[in-house]
Nucleic acid binder design. Sequence first.
DNA 1: CACTAAACGAGACGGTACGTCTCGTCTTGTG
DNA 2: CACAAGACGAGACGTACCGTCTCGTTTAGTG
Lengths: 192, 192, 192, 192
Amino acid sequence: MSRTGPRRSESIRVAVLNAADDLLVEQGFAATTIEGIATRAGVAKQTIYRWWKSKVEILLDALEDDALEGLAWAEPAGTPVEDLVTHLHRVADFFQEPAGQVLQALLGNAQLDQDAAVALREGFLRGQRERDLVGLGAIVERHTGKAPDREHLGRLADLLLGPIYYRVLVFGAPADKELGEAAAHLVLRSTD
Amino acid sequence: MSRTGPRRSESIRVAVLNAADDLLVEQGFAATTIEGIATRAGVAKQTIYRWWKSKVEILLDALEDDALEGLAWAEPAGTPVEDLVTHLHRVADFFQEPAGQVLQALLGNAQLDQDAAVALREGFLRGQRERDLVGLGAIVERHTGKAPDREHLGRLADLLLGPIYYRVLVFGAPADKELGEAAAHLVLRSTD
Amino acid sequence: MSRTGPRRSESIRVAVLNAADDLLVEQGFAATTIEGIATRAGVAKQTIYRWWKSKVEILLDALEDDALEGLAWAEPAGTPVEDLVTHLHRVADFFQEPAGQVLQALLGNAQLDQDAAVALREGFLRGQRERDLVGLGAIVERHTGKAPDREHLGRLADLLLGPIYYRVLVFGAPADKELGEAAAHLVLRSTD
Amino acid sequence: MSRTGPRRSESIRVAVLNAADDLLVEQGFAATTIEGIATRAGVAKQTIYRWWKSKVEILLDALEDDALEGLAWAEPAGTPVEDLVTHLHRVADFFQEPAGQVLQALLGNAQLDQDAAVALREGFLRGQRERDLVGLGAIVERHTGKAPDREHLGRLADLLLGPIYYRVLVFGAPADKELGEAAAHLVLRSTD
DNA sequence: CACTAAACGAGACGGTACGTCTCGTCTTGTG
DNA sequence: CACAAGACGAGACGTACCGTCTCGTTTAGTG
């Protein structure tokens, strides 16, 4: 016997996520207020608070819909080095897209708010880290013939992705192609 | 003939910077309000607005007083690789200190606010980048016997520092010792 | 079909008017700040600004609730002269009451602020003038047997009320009984 | 042996009084701030505070220079009734002049501030009341042949001047000629 | 096909901080 | 030592959002 009455409106959910996304890209994170999202989505504030705890949760929700593919590791399509370079370029490009800006904003906010940091890590980063280790592990295994242990793999991931995030988060500029290539070659050579 | 009247009070400047620093470490960036800083420093709000445009400027001012030495490159004390590893460890440790937390917060805020991003880059990051290139250039030169060109040097800096910042900013955890060592060896080996 | 959502809280309205009244009597007009009223009424500042434009409007609102009866003309109870004297005494006494102090303060403020002057006249004085002319007209008619024209009536009102207001506003002292009596006799005799 | 060093500058005193006067007429009492007066007079704020306790004192100072003659009782020039009417017209006109506006503002402010009220009464009104009683006393004596006692005289003054002040302070409009004439005739007739 | 009961819009409300304004005091160097 | 210049502590201003709350109204189901 299920309960009576209306169910959560999917159209509202979508309208809110889109409004949040749009506001973030157009006005920035600080100007993306719950009130603004509500107005833009044509929705009452209370309706938002009923389903999300904070704007961070909204943006996380929006991120999940978009970021998974933007940061996904592709199927092998060339040599391991080529595939790795391709992936790093893809990551660098991702931050130019709306979803990448959302992630960038959430990462920024995570530096300022412990709760938001936890939510981001639990809600996105941990899963992404897992996917990165799997994707990178496959490439390394194709390159060297055996899978490195998890700790080693994590370090490799840091060495590869760190410089790209560094350029974006610290200098606000996308990583250039050469940086990805240099990182890929250095790191794969180190596994020989 | 200089102008008459009272001059800017240095003791107020120091009190404000300390209050801001303390509040940031104790309560976090969001809870570090101008009003709170003023109360804590025993100063009128207007006095703060007279000299600083925003709390970001205050924290930048505080950073300048503290971060320069925390991220400075030391004089040669061992082999180039040893010195590089030492420096990377130092950078990793820096983010555990108050000044490092200030930098972390400002980097986070810079993702959310274009103006703050510009202020941070002009006020701190550009100078720090310069110091990093000089310091790293010296080490590379000692290692290889000749100085790499500026573009190459920049890439090396990204590859070395990126992973450390990545761990701090993305995972909120300090880089472990091995990461710095791996980065140092990889990068210096690449210059052979 | 009326609009949805919560309605204006009457209890808040009353709390604000009382707080304003109390503060004015206890601390004076200048010390009666919106902030103080809000605190005293246990209400958010924004709530006050939602419903009133300024403290003058609040006091006008408070005045409306109280001053109407304090300055009302009573039903005939004796000879016209007796009734007129009674009314003038009543007006003189009115300025000793809280509502009278509110009116006094608003009159004072009206000298200093054109907008406040207009608000006071539109919001209270015009109506009171009308009531005064009607009340006085009835007494004169009882006394002489015919109603004077409006212009004449206005002059009589000025001659009767002027001295009382003069004593209050210029000398800060209530008019004594004799002044009212003298005014009443002089003016009524002039209509013979 | 008088003390050494510069004395109070008379030119500053005049500049301040003029600036205050001008500001009051142009901008109103509220906008007439000490800071504004200082700027306009080309004088330092501290210099004003050295010699006056508040803007009320400044305006009182300014009033003394101007109001004495504006409200003075003239020498006999016609019948007592004519002279009284002339004086009442003069009082009504006075409030259209700058000095009259200063007095009006000070009267307004006196309703809002006890200290200011005391200062105004001590600094101006008491003396003016005295002059009014003397002037009116002379007229009454000319009219009836004997001087009324002080209490009676005071009541007559209230009956004569009250209506004029009432129109100005309550309705913000000058008393018309008829009002003065009516008051003069009524009051003088009452002394027969 | 009423009858529920939750979802929803609208928006009032107590708070907190914002950045601005002006006050009256205090400090510093000049004439 | 009077003065200009102006820094300073204090505190109210009016605004923006926050997150909570109370209202009708609308929208499914369930009986």
